[in-house]
C-alpha cells in the first residue's frame, strides 16, 4: 500500500485554470490601478473626462486618450512600459474571461460532442483576440 503523500493527483485543465483565475484576477486589479493612478499623476484630472480615463485604465493605449486635452500623447502616454501593461492586461483579461465563459458554458451544456466544440471555438476566439491585441499594441 502506497503512503498517502506519494499519491499525486493528476493535474487537470480545471485545476490549472482555478489557480490562474485567482492570480490573473488579482493581477488585472493591480494593472488597472497602475493605469488609473499613472494617468492621474500625468494630469488626467484636468485633461480628460471619465470615459476616456476608464478606457486608459483598462487598456493604456495612446489611441484611447488621443481625443482629450493631452497636448502630446507621445510624451508619457506611450512607450515600452505602457505597451508591456497592455500586453499583460489582454493576456490576463482574455484568458480569464474566455476561461470563465468556458466554465459557465460547461455547466450548462453536457455531452461528448458539444464540449470539444465549445473548447475549440473559445480557443480560436482566444487566439484571434491575442493576435489582434499584439498587432494593436505594437502598432504605436
Amino acid at each position: 500500500m502506497q503512503p498517502v503523500h506519494s499519491r499525486r493527483p493528476r493535474v487537470t485543465l480545471d485545476m490549472v485554470m482555478w489557480v490562474f483565475t485567482r492570480v490573473s484576477g488579482a493581477a488585472i486589479v493591480v494593472i488597472a490601478l497602475i493605469g488609473f493612478f499613472g494617468a492621474m499623476l500625468m494630469g488626467a484630472r484636468t485633461q480628460m473626462d471619465l470615459p476616456t480615463l476608464m478606457r486608459w485604465t483598462f487598456f493604456p493605449n495612446p489611441n484611447h486618450v488621443v481625443n482629450s486635452n493631452i497636448p502630446d500623447v507621445a510624451i508619457g502616454w506611450s512607450g515600452p512600459f505602457w505597451q508591456t501593461l497592455q500586453i499583460l492586461i489582454v493576456l490576463f483579461g482574455a484568458t480569464h474571461g474566455l476561461n470563465g465563459l468556458r466554465a459557465v458554458l460547461e455547466d450548462h451544456f453536457r455531452g461528448p460532442r458539444i464540449l470539444p466544440a465549445i473548447r475549440a471555438v473559445l480557443f480560436v476566439v482566444w487566439l484571434l483576440v491575442m493576435a489582434i491585441a499584439v498587432a494593436v499594441v505594437l502598432a504605436d
Binding site: 483579461g93 482574455a94 474571461g97 474566455l98 470563465g100 465563459l101 459557465v104 476566439v125 483576440v129 489582434i132
Partner: peptide, 20 residues
Amino acid sequence: HRVTGVGMVLFVVAHITASF
C-alpha cells in the same frame, strides 16, 4: 459573479469587433 463576468466578456468582444 457569473452574470457580471459574462456581461464583461460580451462587452469586450463587442468593443474589439466595433473598433476593428
